[in-house]
Design a protein around this nucleic acid. Structure first.
Lengths: 197, 197
DNA sequence: TGCATTAATACACTCAATGTAGCAATACAT
DNA sequence: ATGTATTGCTACATTGAGTGTATTAATGCA
């Protein structure tokens, strides 16, 4: 990686770090983009050079994360069903989020603000929708004989819908991280048994 | 309904009508809220008295529509499984949308702009998320013995995720309205058969 | 008729987001 | 090493969404 690219990456991290800190200190709405940029000793314009919107600073690593999930679906394992592959892909993405965003405090800030700030929630949902589309496509290409595009979308949509909805409710009921994780893992099976065939 | 309330409803409709027309004429981004208000012979401030955001003018009837779905889950039929009840509730909401939003052109404008305008898409997804939560709660209360809150969320999330994802892909592939409808109806069953148990 | 409510307005303001032009550091060629 | 192109960042100006506040006028109601 060249020096120029490295510096760019550092300013990006500085913006994320400043944003997370300010959001914690004074709340999301009460923090302006100008303040974030100033705290990182950068111009406001630079912020929007790195992030398309204020909320995006909280969803910094989402693009490569989706690629990870798509890649996981790409190397289909022998004897693995579409559902299993999908669950494995989702697991890989969750693991990546834990590894990269937990240490910086980004994961915690995101989890809190998604629950409280409608704008952040909307942006996350949008990202999830595009991720879901990408995963559905990958699923279709991994199982071209079993799943046509519409069927792949239905399966991917159901799996992601089940897992995320279970996570939201589990979190809202104050369950422990372990219990939340269990609820997420159980969700697709629960859905499968109760949905009409 | 009193005269005051009726007038309020009329201004609301005037705003929706003007917005849909202007969005068609000049596009979503190139239409300002000020222009919508002016076209309806109202002040800009009045627009935000009726809609919290510019995008909300396209999602005008969503709140009562969700209540319809919740009510449908409320009167559980004898021998009906949770999945069947959910599908029936979703069907009722889709029917309401067809009846109310098709004649005004609102449905068409919404369908087109959700696919092309990220801001509209984000807002719709957010509305769907809250609707999903409400439906999951209603489902839990309709089947308290079979579904705990987390399980109800998983089932509702899977069903809505499957149906909406199938609809998006079907639309994108240029299928006819009838085929789209069929894809939506088949989606939960498709998901159920492929998800791991 | 008088009083309370409230839909709509006017006005001023904040802030997110974009366009443009310029500067300075980096990359890269000869 | 030196010139040239690239590009990350800045300064400045501007648009437009969304909010706060006070005011007006019509409606609802006693």
């Amino acid at each position: 990686m060249g020096l120029r690219e490295a510096k760019k990456e550092r300013t990006r991290e500085a913006l994320v770090e400043a944003a997370v800190r300010l959001f914690e200190e004074k709340g999301y709405e009460r923090t302006t983009v100008a303040q974030i940029a100033a705290a990182a000793q950068l111009s406001t314009r630079t912020f929007f050079l790195h992030f398309a919107a204020k909320e995006d600073v909280l969803l910094a690593n989402s693009v490569p994360r989706v690629e990870l999930g798509v890649a996981a679906l790409g190397d289909r394992r022998p004897g693995e069903t579409p559902g299993d592959a999908l669950v494995r892909a989702i697991g890989a993405m969750v693991a990546d989020a834990s590894a990269k965003d937990l240490p910086t405090g980004l994961a915690a800030a995101r989890a809190r603000l998604v629950a409280t700030e409608p704008a952040v929630q909307a942006r996350l949902l949008q990202r999830m929708a595009t991720a879901q589309t990408a995963l559905a496509d990958a699923l279709h290409h991994a199982y071209p004989d079993e799943l046509d595009p519409v069927a792949a979308a239905a399966v991917a949509g159901a799996a992601i819908g089940a897992v995320s909805a279970a996570a939201v409710v589990a979190l809202r009921h104050g369950l422990s991280p372990t219990q939340v994780r269990e609820a997420m893992l159980k969700a697709p099976a629960t859905a499968a048994t109760h949905l009409p065939k």
